[in-house]
């Protein structure tokens, strides 16, 4: 009993079936594999491939768009830079011109001021001179009259006007009023 139990499976399965190909199973394999290939080839691979290609296209498009946008942006930037440079140059020019104008104006104003001052001082000098002259004339006249009065008192005799005046003028002519005049103009 035990012997048969031990021996029966030994005889039935010595393992050679493992390396014996079976036509039936091979045919089944071909059928199943063929069906799988048809199904995958029709329903799976084209869709996956298409989806991958679509994504690839999208990525390429995005990259292209991004590159184009960047190029545009760079162009814009360079344009703006150019314009900015121009604007700066213009601004500098404007400032330069304004400075020049201002300097010219200042110069002019200074000139004008100098002129005015010079004119004013000339006029003042003239006035002073005129005033001095007038004062001297008055002094002279006073001196003449005082001298006449004094002479009359001394001589008890009135000189006629023309004589008197001539005499005094002569006397005064010898006196030097130049120093007086000079001191007056300095003041």
């Amino acid at each position: 009993m035990l012997a048969s139990l031990v021996h029966a499976p030994l005889a039935a399965s010595n393992g050679s079936f493992l390396i014996k190909p079976s036509i039936g199973l091979m045919v089944w394999t071909l059928l199943v594999f063929g069906a799988t290939m048809v199904l995958l080839g029709k329903l799976a691979f084209p869709r996956i491939s298409e989806a991958l290609e679509r994504r690839q296209r999208t990525i390429e498009d995005s990259i292209e768009t991004a590159e184009r946008t960047r190029a545009e942006a760079e162009q814009l930037l360079s344009e703006y830079r150019e314009r900015l440079k121009e604007a700066r140059a213009q601004a500098e020019e404007i400032v330069q011109r304004a400075r020049q104008t201002a300097e010219a104006r200042e110069h002019e104003a200074k000139e004008r001021g100098h002129e005015l001052v010079a004119e004013a001082s000339k006029r003042a000098q003239r006035d002073i001179e005129a005033a001095t002259k007038r004062a001297l004339d008055e002094v002279r006249k006073e001196v003449v009259e005082l001298t006449i009065l004094a002479t009359e008192k001394v001589t008890r005799k009135a000189l006629d006007d023309s004589d008197q005046k001539r005499l005094v003028e002569e006397a005064l002519g010898e006196l030097d009023f130049a120093g007086l005049s000079a001191s007056a103009s300095r003041n």
């Binding site: 199943v32 594999f33 199904l39 329903l43 799976a44 869709r47 994504r55």
Partner: peptide
């Protein structure tokens, strides 16, 4: 087992292929 493998291959691949997302 052949049918099992084929069914799993087809079902999973077709399922994923139909739901391909961007």
């Amino acid at each position: 087992y052949l049918f099992l493998a084929a069914a799993l291959t087809c079902v999973s691949m077709i399922y994923i292929a139909r739901r391909m997302q961007q």
